[in-house]
Simulated scan of single mutants.
Amino acid sequence: MGAALHLAHIHQAPPGPKKKRKGGGGGDGYDALVARVYQDRRMTPEARELILLLAWLAVRDPNRYDTDGNLISWGERAAAILGEYGPGPRKGSRLADLLYADRPRYEDKRSGWETRQCAAPMIRRAGLCGQRGVEHTYTVDQETGWRTAVWYCRRHEDWGNALRAQRAANPGPEPIPNAGGLVVSYLMVDGQEQAWARLYRDAAAWKRDGQWEPPKKYGLRADDWPIPGKEPVAPRARLRLAALDGDLIP
């Protein structure tokens, strides 16, 4: 899986041979980042693991330079730490797993799937049908693009088909993403959107998902996505990543 990002600290070293360096101290921002990650209620286990690993590789890894003082590919170091798994020539990649789990996307909420009650309005009495639904369709919020499952029973198939036709005629706006995008909220700075999109796309390809595309309107960072009824997340300081050559998976 190809990639185009290589980790580097915000202060770039001068060209030419360098002395072998040791990991950074508390002034490099890593300790504060760790605390912030663990306090973030949005955090997933996969995003936490990847953020902390990439940040550590950027500023703390004592082995990030070779014997000549040259920076080693972060992909090579990350792959060595995370390892591979499974039999066969195409082994699984933990790094691809973590990136894919954090891909920015919209996911339907599974509300109503437990009861699956028919939501068709009754004509002869007030209220909804309430019978066990056998099929479902979706309604779309015209502000957020978020979808809500609507179930219907055999008796109300015509009603359900009419809802489906309405949605096809008016699919609504691009949904606001509600999953992923946490790694880039901590590590991506302006100008790196395309490079990170390639990383996510390569991870999706490695997971055999050819359908994923970055959000067109809302960007990759979860910090930038509007949440109906809530204030936007305040801008946060980020570790700088430099666009250089490197491979996610050697």
Results as ranks from 00 to 15, higher is better:
M1T: 14
I10F: 12
Q12A: 14
A13V: 13
P17F: 11
G23S: 06
G24C: 07
G26V: 13
G27T: 15
Y30A: 12
Y30P: 03
A32F: 10
V34C: 12
R36P: 02
V37W: 09
Y38W: 15
Q39N: 15
E49T: 15
I51P: 06
W56A: 06
V59K: 00
R60C: 14
R64F: 08
G69R: 14
G75I: 03
R77E: 04
A80N: 02
E84R: 02
G86F: 05
G88W: 05
L98A: 07
R105K: 06
Y106I: 00
D108S: 07
E114H: 12
P121E: 01
R124C: 06
R125C: 01
A126S: 11
L128E: 10
C129A: 06
V134C: 12
T137F: 08
Y138N: 02
V140C: 10
D141Y: 09
D141T: 08
E143G: 10
W146C: 01
R147F: 02
R147W: 02
W151D: 03
Y152G: 07
R155V: 08
H156V: 01
W159I: 02
W159Q: 00
A165N: 05
A168H: 06
A169G: 15
N170L: 06
P173F: 05
E174H: 04
I176P: 00
A179W: 00
A179S: 11
L182C: 04
V184Y: 03
Y186F: 12
L187N: 01
D190Q: 14
A197W: 01
Y200L: 07
D202N: 13
W206K: 14
K207V: 07
R208H: 14
R208P: 00
P215E: 07
K217D: 01
L220W: 00
L220E: 05
L220A: 04
A222R: 01
A222I: 00
D223R: 04
D224M: 03
P228Y: 05
A237G: 15
A237K: 14
L244R: 10
D247H: 10
